[in-house]
Amino acid sequence: MTVEEILRKDALSYIDEHIENIEFDNDMSDYSFRILYKNGNMDSVVGNDYDGHKIARINIESIVIDNPCTSMVYGNYNINEYGVVNPAHEMFIDSNIKEN
Rank of each mutant, 00 (worst) to 15 (best):
M1C: 08
V46H: 09
D66T: 11
V64Y: 03
Y50L: 07
G40L: 06
R57I: 10
S71L: 02
D49Q: 13
S32K: 05
H89R: 10
S32H: 02
I65M: 05
A56M: 13
N96W: 07
E4Q: 15
I15S: 00
H89A: 11
S62C: 04
N86W: 01
Y82H: 13
I22M: 09
A56N: 14
S32T: 01
V85W: 03
E81W: 10
V45Y: 04
H89G: 07
D25L: 14
K38H: 05
E4R: 15
I60G: 01
A56H: 12
R8N: 09
S95I: 13
Y37C: 00
D66Q: 09
E20Q: 15
Y31V: 03
C69V: 12
Y50I: 04
P87D: 02
M1D: 07
I63Q: 03
A11P: 01
Y50E: 06
N76F: 13
I35D: 00
N86A: 09
E90I: 10
I63R: 02
I55F: 00
Y14G: 00
P68E: 01
N86L: 08
N41A: 12
I55Q: 03
Y37L: 02
G75C: 08
K54H: 12
G47M: 02
H18E: 04
K98W: 07
V84S: 09
N21A: 11
I60T: 05
D10N: 14
C69N: 14
I97G: 05
E5C: 10
N26L: 12
I19Q: 06
V46N: 08
N39P: 08
V85H: 00
I35W: 00
I15P: 06
V85K: 04
E5N: 13
N96P: 08
N48I: 09
V45M: 07
I60A: 04
H53L: 09
I19N: 05
L7S: 14
M72Y: 15
N48Y: 05
D51K: 14
K9A: 11
N59R: 10
V84G: 06
V85A: 10
H53G: 11
N59I: 02
I15L: 01
I79H: 04
Y37F: 07
C69K: 14
M42D: 07
K38W: 02
G40S: 08
T2L: 13
I6Y: 06
V73G: 06
K9I: 13
F24D: 13
S95N: 13
D27H: 05
E61G: 05
F33K: 01
N80E: 07
V84M: 09
N41H: 07
P68Y: 00
S44H: 10
I15Y: 05
S62R: 03
N59Y: 11
Y31K: 07
K9W: 07
L12Q: 03
N76G: 01
I79N: 03
M72A: 08
K98S: 12
N41F: 08
D30K: 05
S62H: 03
G52Q: 10
S62Q: 04
S71W: 04
V85Q: 02
F92E: 12
I6S: 05
D27Y: 04
I79Y: 04
S29F: 07
V45N: 01
Y37I: 02
D16S: 14
H89T: 09
S71T: 03
